[in-house]
Nucleic acid binder design. Structure first.
Lengths: 212, 212
DNA sequence: TGTACATCAGTGAACGCGCGTTCACTGATGTAC
DNA sequence: TGTACATCAGTGAACGCGCGTTCACTGATGTAC
């Protein structure tokens, strides 16, 4: 069956998109070609009409995942008043929802170590995307000189990503919630609400409960 | 050949130790049983006299790697005056040397995502070790109440680990060095030396050069 | 103390499963005339 | 506009390699007598 001009491009994109979810969930070696194709509603035989190798899809899917994160942050920045952008990004990132859904989340905490093991050439492509994330984050830090903003952006991203990895190791319980909270507070400072919660044991328990 | 009582224990430990290095370098799926045994000077056939499965060795090797990190920090704490402990740990962690030698480095930046994908039971065992790291780090934060120290320790660890992952994605060049520096500064604050360097372009270049 | 036997860590061949990759084939649609 | 042919995304069987695992065997040393 010969398909229309756009059909192949659409199918290709669908494979990449679905693969990026499964690979974030299971890791770069965690899913086979057959499974990835099934995810896109196809059989494994057609795979090589779209990609030179499994490796090639993995790279493309990783890139897609990072592009989506950048895009998401860009959207938040557009739709949020300047002084709330940083906190909106950080607070939506360091969330149990994000922690428990790595397939649709940031690629660095799930795939960062595997990206670091790629060839220098491939790594460089991802470094460019990382650079974009840093600049985007620095854009949200308004009341400091640009150089300082960039330094702070780097540290904020590192804290966010490290917090996410640690909270996932800790699971979904109270310990994991504590880690997320510490990350949020470190980046944004203690809010009035969290200060209050820290002083009143009763409301702390309630807060712990809502975090699962 | 029947060996002395301690022989098996020693061999077992040697396999785990060597495996922990190779697994940190290549990832949990990056090395085969035969290679791991060869690393310890043995052939693959003897593997199952020591471990129930490859998975069992991976788990044990991950645990060994984390224990070594904890042990190393504990030693630093013992051998360093109280007010220098935090900076000594952080400065030896956020180093090009550590970045370029994942095999002998901290397990979280290399294996954290894979630990997070393990079974809840296994994850919990690693969460215990993570908890130990947190407490050890909190012990070094002296002039704040314990609860605050713990929160700060969590954030510091997250920043350290996130910085390491990001710097490895960035490779070994200037960008990677910038990431490490931002991490150090975020955790320790600008030192007199780095402040000076930031003002004098000449010495900044020199600093960049020493970072590779 | 000396001798016969038991043990079992380690060897290397072999097994078998899974998975990446290949290939002959299909058949719907695009294109040439 | 209609017809014959070409194209090529997708199918499913098959290939073959790598790797985790098994197994019969070895032989040095521990242990029983």
């Amino acid at each position: 069956m010969r398909y229309s001009r756009e059909h192949k491009v659409e199918t290709h994109a669908r494979i990449v998109k679905k693969a990026s979810v499964r690979l974030r969930e299971k890791g770069a070696h965690g899913v086979g070609v057959a499974d990835l194709m099934k995810e896109a509603g196809l059989t494994h035989g057609g795979f090589y009409a779209h990609f030179d190798s499994r490796e090639a899809l993995v790279i493309e899917a990783f890139g897609y995942a990072m592009d989506r994160a950048i895009e998401r942050w860009r959207k938040v920045a557009e739709q949020t008043p300047a002084d709330k952008r940083l906190s909106t990004i950080v607070e939506s990132y360091l969330t149990p929802l994000h922690r428990d859904d790595p397939g649709n989340g940031c690629a660095i905490p799930t795939l960062g170590a595997e990206i670091a093991r790629e060839s220098p050439k491939t790594r460089r492509a991802f470094a460019v995307k990382l650079e974009q994330m840093i600049e985007l984050m620095a854009d949200q830090l308004l009341d400091v000189p640009r150089k300082t903003a960039r330094k702070q952006a780097l540290a904020i991203l590192a804290t966010m990503m490290g917090t996410m990895v640690m909270s996932r190791i800790a699971g979904t319980g109270e310990f994991s919630g504590e880690i997320l909270e510490a990350g949020r507070e470190a980046v944004l400072g203690r809010t009035a609400a969290s200060k209050l919660a820290a002083k009143k044991p009763a409301s702390r328990k309630a807060a712990a409960a809502t975090r699962q």
